[in-house]
Design a protein around this nucleic acid. Structure first.
Lengths: 333, 333
DNA sequence: CCGTAAACTGAAATCGTTAACAATTCTATT
DNA sequence: AATAGAATTGTTAACGATTTCAGTTTACGG
């Protein structure tokens, strides 16, 4: 392996000069720098990151932590996140991927191993981890789940507004009897989406019928069960907002099973816009959650945090968008 | 930050002794070791991995490389792979995730940065990368795509046998007119699956009708197009094997669009068993590709390669399994 | 032509760990 | 009790980079 000392020998300078030249120090004369860079390239020099890390105390790795990769994390979620991050992150940073539930010793999470950490959070239970990271003084950005703590950089989608827009749209299509299949209890996203749902109904002066609030937990199965129950109601709703696409798919299957035409009898609206929502039959109308954009923005914030540690934490919202497909029928008045 | 020297001072021994004690060297007396371990724990000592790496020349990171994370890689694929790997991999290894198409300087891929590399390969184009890794002498296991080179550790599914079983099953249900929508040309998986398809037809003494071999490229859209063409045939097939689930979903949508009942008129068989194949309508009968198991086995092989570098490369097959759902009809003779 | 400031380069220390070799302490044998 | 040999422990030098501080050029005004 080539080291800076080898280059120094060839170039006839000290290894210090080589180090400086290669790191863009302003102290080095242009001709010297050019010569050294040329030689380094010719010799295929590659810096030793361990040595670099040891002295600079930077690890050149960014940790991406999901609540869990075992369960609960939808696949496209993970992919979109990785995509967004690698768009922004410099190539010579390492991006490591982990599930928080796989971290058994918080001791392994220290500044020396991670220059920065991104948490793609889906659950309150991540808080212990998040606060450990914060306590350790590792630059941190929490994505996807809205935090109460203003002391932590936080990038999320504007779920509430997104749901409101979707329901507004369905209301304009003539719907009046709206049901909601709620997300997992206790999740901020569940309550935000529910709130957006209610905001819209209230704005349209539509009644909030308690029969139309069905429990769910973001799983396909729970969507199926909740929809099945709604269909058994004496006066079933005409439109059902499902708090995520997985549940919408479950709900659609329940409709098939009960011979309830979608959207003829039941209109469905999802949330997330996962890859398969366009290939359901009929294709699902849904609210697109911009995971890639959230990840990109979050990574930008993290990079800024690395460069300017005094940057103030803030809460940033990324806009959702309504994706109109085929599961919302226009109702005759 | 606490270092071994701090511990040494407190324990009244040399830092070398501390290093040895903490690394399980047999040279250290039990009482000394116990004392040192106790002190280390009390002082919350965490080893500095950069320093460790520098001297041991190990990086404690394993690289997982996909052909691309931007496109072509189905999401569940990525998740299942990460799952399988993290099941096996020791917690104090870092797992980094990258797309090969995102690696612009092969120079960054060197032994010093990766103790080992797993390539989840989906394309011939990965070969340049694979051979670079091999040339660099980095322990390497290639997953998912069958290689011709016996010099590289390779773990794949037994696609051919899997497809044969599936077609055997459909033949037992009375089907005789079988079509195939092929995978991306040039891919080993495409030809293996096609071969399994033909193996079964030949075993059942069924004709190989060239009209029934439709081109595809593993995309949902290509499945749609190919199916649409098959339906326009004068004498359409009764069963269509789609070389992956994505194309099967495309094909199913084409059937809907052309009012061809599935499985009443057309029976469909997929390959992969992605998460959504159970939620299509009707639920897709498919061949399950054991990505998690492939990743687990591959990781085991890599770990072995790290510990015993002289381990001979081999090609390992993991069995697929037929998942019978609702898209294959039983035909009256 | 010299002095001096500015521009550049180099020597040596340092980061926290492991490892080769040296030194010390036991243990058991004579 | 002396001593060989085994069992422990310590000294010191790496590993490959950055950084502090000191030393050497260079440029330019007088």
């Amino acid at each position: 392996m080539i080291t800076i000392k080898d280059i120094a020998r060839v170039a006839g300078v000290s290894h210090t000069t080589v180090s400086r030249a290669l790191n863009g120090s302003p102290l080095i004369k242009k001709v010297t720098r050019d010569k050294i860079e040329k030689i380094a390239a010719e010799m295929n020099y590659i810096p030793n990151y361990s040595a670099k890390s040891l002295v600079t105390r930077r690890s050149f790795t960014i940790g991406l932590f999901f609540s869990s990769i075992e369960q609960g994390t939808s696949a496209s979620f993970l992919v979109d996140a990785i995509k967004g991050i690698s768009h922004i992150l410099d190539e010579n940073f390492n991006l490591t991927v982990n599930g928080i539930d796989g971290v058994h010793h918080f001791g392994n999470i220290q500044p020396q191993r991670f220059d920065g950490i991104l948490v793609m959070s889906q659950s309150d239970e991540d808080n212990a981890f998040i606060y450990h990271v914060k306590k350790m003084g590792i630059p941190l950005v929490v994505l996807n789940r809205q935090l109460e703590d203003p002391g932590i950089m936080n990038v999320v989608a504007n779920d509430r507004e997104g749901v409101k827009e979707a329901i507004d749209y369905a209301a304009r299509q003539g719907h009046q009897k709206f049901a909601i299949i709620e997300g997992k209890p206790g999740f901020k996203s569940s309550s935000e989406r529910k709130q957006g749902f209610m905001d819209s109904l209230i704005a349209h002066r539509l009644p909030l019928n308690s029969d139309y609030f069905a429990a769910g937990d973001y799983s396909i199965e729970s969507g199926y069960a909740a929809m099945a129950a709604l269909l058994l109601l004496e006066d079933p709703p005409t439109a059902v907002f499902c708090s995520n696409d997985d549940m919408a798919i479950g709900a659609m299957n329940a409709c098939y099973a009960h011979k309830a035409d979608v959207p003829g009898k039941i209109s469905l609206i999802g949330f997330d816009d996962i890859m398969f929502s366009r290939y359901t039959n009929p294709a699902l109308t849904t609210v697109r959650k911009p995971i890639t954009e959230i990840s990109e923005l979050g990574t930008k914030m993290l990079v800024q945090l690395l460069q300017q540690p005094e940057t103030q934490p803030q809460q940033l919202f990324v806009k959702t968008s309504l994706v109109i497909r085929q599961t919302v029928a226009e109702l005759q008045q």
